[in-house]
Write a protein that binds this DNA or RNA. Structure first.
Lengths: 227, 227
DNA sequence: GAATGTGAAAATATTCACAGCG
DNA sequence: CGCTGTGAATATTTTCACATTC
């Protein structure tokens, strides 16, 4: 029996993305190393946490090297290792469905190209959009989804359509054999077993924020009451 | 010494937003109640989890009523209670800074109005945008931020500017006395002590998704290997 | 019977704290 | 020294399981 493959803890996975982002400027400006304390302070995370997370990365790669005592972590190596674990050193061609404001914002941004993500084809359900070129790509009808996804072995679909169309398109994506969906529609979508979904939801984010603010208010009040 | 105010567990806070979203259609179509099991299944959460979360809501409101044994939870009451805890029954006027694609998408969406969030004023650093009307609001220069935020007692700022402008605007918002920032710029922003930040980051979301897919792949492979 | 509400148990995640390296 | 790597201790979160209510 092989040693059970330890799955990456959810919170660690999330933080790895943040570490990655944080060291990009350091690499750009040639800073050779960073300590767990420094990196942690930037992100409001304990140094022990950072070390545990990075230790996990090393273990999962089964290479025995990582940070150096008394010095810190090599930014370049860290970058490499994290990308390896995250899968950001693979190519991840995606399809974008829905060329409205959000879709255009994504096409215009392109900042995730360095993580291997690219938009390979764009689609819109509105027939009047068909053929129009946006960001160098011609808009295709959703009927072409299946073929494009199959022939290009695309594993990620970006769903940027209005709520009303979201489930229909999600089902089309699943049927076409997509592996994961990044969902911008403000609703839960049902997907085929085995398809991953990540939601980007502004309402949820706003609610999270307002909760934080409310909690701060309460703490402030009770602190004043105690003083 | 008063009973220590128990803070809401982070994961619970996140799920409450999801419950809220999930019961909106039920309320709209007049379904009177829902069981913890049903609600949990919709979201991939255990029924015990749902009950614990909702029990927390009740406790924090200090009203003794919630679900009914053998029946389930009253959708209408649940809606009310969760909104109360989240703060979604307050008014949350916001300012939007940055009227690019993301800003326009937010202005066009407006689906968070029912949670009390509204965009009260819009700003852009580009002077050529000044005065242009989008979504019924005239674009103001960022120099007006301070005054608008103060006079309208606005607590949330939505930061939808390019990365290069993000820190400058974030600082302006903080100086103007903002309480929380919803940050769409793909970077960590530094803020004044006491200001909450929630990030909406597409790269992080994509990386999360690709990790999920990779993990699924590994599991599949090892399962096939074992079979 | 069908469901809630909740202590107690289990699983996860974080922090502590320190041996050991460079 | 300063800093990593990591077991052990803590804290948090989830699940179990069951008495209780409708």
């Amino acid at each position: 029996m092989p040693p059970t493959v330890r799955r990456i803890p959810r919170p660690t996975a999330q933080r790895l993305s943040l570490y990655l982002r944080e060291i990009q400027p350091l690499i750009a400006q040639g800073q050779p190393t960073i300590s767990s304390r420094e990196l942690g302070e930037k992100l409001g995370v304990s140094s022990a946490q950072v070390r545990k997370d990075l230790a996990w990365v090393v273990q999962s790669r089964q290479t025995g090297e990582s940070g150096r005592s008394g010095v810190g972590y090599n930014c370049f190596k860290m970058n490499d290792s994290i990308r390896h674990v995250i899968g950001a050193n693979r190519r991840w061609p995606t399809v974008l469905v829905g060329v409205g404001n959000i879709g255009r914002a994504l096409l215009a941004y392109g900042g995730f190209a360095q993580d291997g993500f690219s938009i390979a084809a764009i689609f819109d359900a509105n027939p009047r959009m068909e053929g129009k070129r946006v960001g160098g790509l011609a808009i295709q009808p959703t009927s072409a989804l299946r073929k494009v996804i199959r022939t290009n072995r695309i594993s990620i679909g970006i769903l940027a359509v209005p709520r009303s169309a979201a489930q229909v398109v999600a089902t089309q994506l699943c049927d076409a054999g997509i592996r994961g969906i990044l969902n911008f529609a403000p609703m839960r979508i049902a997907v085929t077993e085995g398809v991953s979904v990540t939601n980007v939801d502004v309402s949820v984010a706003l609610e999270q924020l307002s909760m934080d603010i409310s909690i701060r208010d309460q703490l402030r009040l009770s602190a004043e009451g105690a003083a």
